[in-house]
Amino acid sequence: MNKKHLAGYAILATAFTVLGAIAGVRQDAKGPVTTSYAPTDSRAHTAAANLYAQSLNDLAGKPQSLAQWKGKPLLVNFWASWCAPCVQEMPELSELAARDGGKTFHVIGIGIDSPTNLAEFAKKIKISYPLYVGGLGATDLARGLGNANGGLPYTVLIGADGQVRKTYLGRLKFDQLRADLAALKG
């Protein structure tokens, strides 16, 4: 990694840390800042279609088409290894994904970090769902899915029909998430 990329990641990490801290301070005990979306006449949201059009590397460096998740209920978690709330929620998110086993929904993680940092993190903490390297470009992808402030963690719930159902900015409250996932099935 050259110095230009390293400096870019450092600046981005600092910006996300500040934005995350601001979002964290503004949150109350109710949990993350959430946004619910109205249906779009059973047509996929443009943001979800854009997500499915992406190809990101997995942690082994192999390109993976996100189109493989099209037509399946999906929880997309944007995170970084330097983001404390991201790291704190990942074990419980991993347990939730493992318990369901893809029967009713799938979870993927998109890391806004360097491939090296993400791979080192994954060696320390075992995660049961696929992790992809989004790098700096994933910031734009998250913004397209409603993350105007660029804070992390940022999670997006997408129905099998490609409609964005809800977004969560900040650390997840899992009781709330389980209720949203149950409503997704119904």
Rank of each mutant, 00 (worst) to 15 (best):
L118W: 15
A97P: 04
A47Q: 04
G186H: 13
G144K: 09
K72S: 11
R99G: 00
L59C: 15
R99F: 02
S128R: 09
V18R: 10
A97V: 05
E89A: 03
K173V: 01
A142P: 07
K185G: 04
R165M: 03
G24T: 10
S65T: 12
A21C: 13
H45E: 01
E92V: 01
M90Q: 07
S42H: 09
A119W: 14
A49V: 08
G150N: 06
L74G: 03
D100R: 01
G135A: 06
G31I: 00
T167G: 05
S128I: 02
L51T: 05
F16I: 09
A53G: 13
G144P: 01
T139S: 11
S42E: 08
P153G: 10
T34H: 04
K124T: 09
T17Y: 15
A160V: 03
D175A: 06
D175K: 00
S128V: 06
A60P: 10
W82M: 11
Y9G: 12
L59W: 11
G8P: 00
A84D: 10
L172G: 01
L93W: 02
L118C: 15
Y52R: 08
W79G: 05
E120H: 15
V107F: 07
A97F: 02
T14A: 15
A80I: 12
V156W: 04
V164D: 03
P73N: 09
V25N: 10
P115S: 14
G101Y: 07
S81Y: 13
A142R: 04
S55C: 09
E89H: 04
I11V: 15
A160P: 01
S114E: 14
P32F: 06
W82R: 13
A148V: 10
A98N: 00
F16S: 10
A183M: 05
R178D: 00
H106N: 13
I22K: 06
A15H: 09
Q176E: 08
A48G: 03
T14M: 13
A182R: 06
L19D: 11
S36E: 11
K126P: 08
Q88T: 08
A98Q: 05
A98Y: 00
Y132A: 12
L6N: 14
A48E: 02
T155K: 07
V25D: 08
A23Y: 10
A15E: 13
H106E: 13
K70A: 10
P63L: 12
S55G: 08
V18H: 07
G186W: 10
F105M: 00
T167V: 03
A29N: 10
G24P: 01
S55R: 11
G151I: 05
H5D: 15
G111H: 14
A29M: 05
Y168I: 02
A7F: 11
T116P: 01
A21K: 13
R26D: 11
R43V: 02
D100T: 01
V33N: 04
A84E: 12
P32E: 02
L19V: 11
N50Y: 09
